[in-house]
């Protein structure tokens, strides 16, 4: 190597060998210390496993929706762990199978909402001015309408189906993400490294996707975890009202709704899907709070 390199090496500071950790690894290390978040995460992993295997261990036609009047309204027993409902269907099988609907709808609509919301928010925050005005005012309009109303409108226009339910839920999710993404993009865009990226010759879309958005990820991840929980509740509410997933699919909200008439003598028909919703959302919120603290340790103080 040339003389230049040699002399510069000697002027450099002594380098202590330390383990290279990215922000993600750093956050994971902090998250592991948070007991509540780990409990939530464990529950969610269990739920995902259950959702996957319940498709194999239960036969949808017979175990989940098959009517069996001879065994109707049985109390919990060794044979039916959570008892049976008014049509003699095993509640244990139905609750486990129901986790598939809640997870798919929760994760699915948050994912679609995230993509739409972050794109809109990034455009509004990056370009500002007229673009910002148009995007944010439309956003405000959607934000002002109660989300159940939006869902009712969409479902009554296009009919009840899982896809329409997903669509109606993701509108609400997208508005929240638009706001968050816009605010973060506006702060990051002012930073010098964005200017440096332009000075390097990067085109605008690459600057947005490679330099600005990755720096906005923390609040977006937190919002995603927390809004899965809210979305599951919203989905159950719609099913409870009869405009969610059509009967006889074992959606938790729908099961709750069907059990209402028997709540006096067979309360467990309502209580069990209710508990399923509660624990799932609780786990998601615990995890969400943990992720927020892990990504922004300064905030916790």
């Amino acid at each position: 190597m040339s003389a230049v390199t040699k002399s510069t090496v000697t002027t450099a500071k002594p380098v202590t060998k330390m383990k290279s950790r990215s922000q993600g690894q750093e956050a994971w290390r902090r998250l592991k210390k948070n007991k509540g978040a780990m409990l939530g995460l464990a529950f969610l992993i269990l739920l995902v496993v259950v959702a996957i295997i319940s498709g194999y261990i239960f036969d949808y036609e017979t175990d989940v929706i098959g009517i069996n009047p001879a065994e109707k309204l049985q109390k919990p027993s060794a044979q039916h762990w959570f008892g049976t409902d008014n049509l003699g269907r095993d509640i244990f099988a139905r609750v486990l199978y129901g986790s598939r609907y809640s997870l798919v709808i929760g994760v699915g609509s948050v994912f679609i909402g995230l993509v739409i919301g972050v794109l809109c928010g990034a455009l509004a925050g990056y370009y500002g001015g007229m673009v910002d005005q148009v995007v944010m005012r439309i956003n405000d309009m959607l934000y002002a309408v109660p989300n159940i109303m939006i869902a009712v409108v969409i479902v009554s226009l296009f009919g009840t189906s899982t896809f329409n339910l997903l669509l109606s839920l993701c509108v609400t999710v997208a508005t929240a993400f638009t706001r968050i993404a816009r605010a973060s993009v506006m702060t990051i865009r002012q930073q010098e490294f964005v200017e440096a990226a332009y000075a390097m010759g990067l085109p605008t879309w690459k600057v947005i996707f490679k330099h600005i958005l990755p720096n906005c990820l923390s609040p977006i991840i937190v919002q995603a975890t927390l809004s899965i929980g809210t979305t599951i509740i919203n989905a159950s509410s719609l099913s409870f009202l009869g405009i969610g997933i059509p009967s006889p699919a074992p959606e938790w909200g729908a099961m709750l709704s069907e059990g209402r008439n028997f709540i006096r003598n067979s309360g467990y028909i309502c209580v069990i899907p209710g508990l399923a919703i509660m624990f799932t959302v609780l786990a998601l919120n615990l995890l969400g709070d943990g992720v927020r603290d892990a990504l922004d340790p300064k905030l916790k103080k």
Binding site: S20, Q191, E192, F193, A196, M200, G201, P203, K210
Partner: peptide
Amino acid sequence: PKELQKMRGNDVAMIFQDPMTALNPVMT
């Protein structure tokens, strides 16, 4: 704009004032 992108970084490069903010914190 295309020619400018080709020029920036290749023909002309810039060193910024504050090294604390001129690097992207999420990239190595």
